[in-house]
Design a protein around this nucleic acid. Structure first.
Lengths: 162, 162
DNA sequence: GGAAGCAAGACCAAAATGGTCGTAGATTGA
DNA sequence: TCAATCTACGACCATTTTGGTCTTGCTTCC
């Protein structure tokens, strides 16, 4: 259930990588103006991802405004904003598109017919909930050691009122 | 993002329908021993779902123990338990299988290599969170009018600790 | 000017999804 | 007991999505 595509996976990995590079670049000295940019090829090799595929994903993310690209020798991609300001939701939506949890919803919830699939209204809420959950997780959160992760994700905070 | 399959949609619709039938049957009089059973064809017609497809879905749900089936004339399917005791998570998992949010996880999180996709640990938490969310929503919740739905689903309760 | 890199679109193969068909077995009512 | 319903199940097929490749062109830097 609720699988996200490999492309989104790759995208998140790449962003995480770039976030780490940005930190390294910062540590190396701000005066050098190193933005932590890396070429698609570098990232692909680091994670054993098909380079051309990753390139396309990065292009998508750049078009979405999450990355900035720089062509030419020593070019590459870098985060457009701080890693803490990029949510995983944005990334996923940029790559996988604005898909909703239930099939028969486009933008205006116009199902095939009003009578059927009364299901979708409740599911829409679930969808919103997941959206806010993902929106609350930034790329920076991904770079942190697995130990002290965001707490709500453990599941305890999600409660249902009957 | 995070689309669930039409089959799961259909399954939820059918369960909702059966839940409503069970209530109706109960109101009609407990002495009649009406279990609210309905044939796959009836449900399919009610929602304009391909009958044969729905039949297969219902079979799956019956095998999963969520429904009880009865063959023969006037046979059909009915809820195996109270609608309040069947979570949407069970339904989705029964139909779509035990899929995880991130691609490279089976049961024991053995990714292709340790180094790559350090992403998946955080995502696993997201997965758990969604699981608990869905587990908290029962089929009975789906039958209620859309107004007073479970509160946490609105998103307010889901918070992230930084 | 040439190498390194992004940009973009056409294209393709494999897998998942949605749906159909046909047959067999159970149950009930006439 | 026979026919009408209904479930059970597996094979099968078409369409879409996904993952991935190839080609071509444009930028930038040395």
């Amino acid at each position: 259930m609720l699988r996200l595509t490999k492309k989104a996976d790759y995208g998140l990995m790449a962003l995480k990588y770039l976030a780490e590079q940005a930190i390294l670049a910062e540590q190396a000295g701000a005066d050098l103006n190193l933005s932590g940019a890396r070429s698609a090829k570098d990232i692909a090799e680091a994670y054993h991802i098909p380079p051309q595929l990753l390139a396309k994903i990065l292009q998508t993310l750049a078009r979405a405004g999450l990355l900035v690209s720089h062509a030419g020798t020593n070019g590459g991609y870098a985060l457009a904003r701080s890693a803490a300001d990029i949510s995983t939701f944005e990334v996923i939506r940029a790559i996988d598109g604005p898909l909703f949890i239930t099939s028969c919803i486009t933008i205006h919830g116009a199902c095939d017919l009003a009578g059927h699939c009364t299901i979708k209204e409740p599911l829409r809420k679930v969808n919103d909930s997941i959206t806010t959950l993902l929106s609350g997780i930034s790329v920076a959160d991904l770079t942190e050691p697995a130990d002290h992760l965001p707490a709500a994700m453990a599941g305890g905070l999600v409660s249902i009122e009957r």
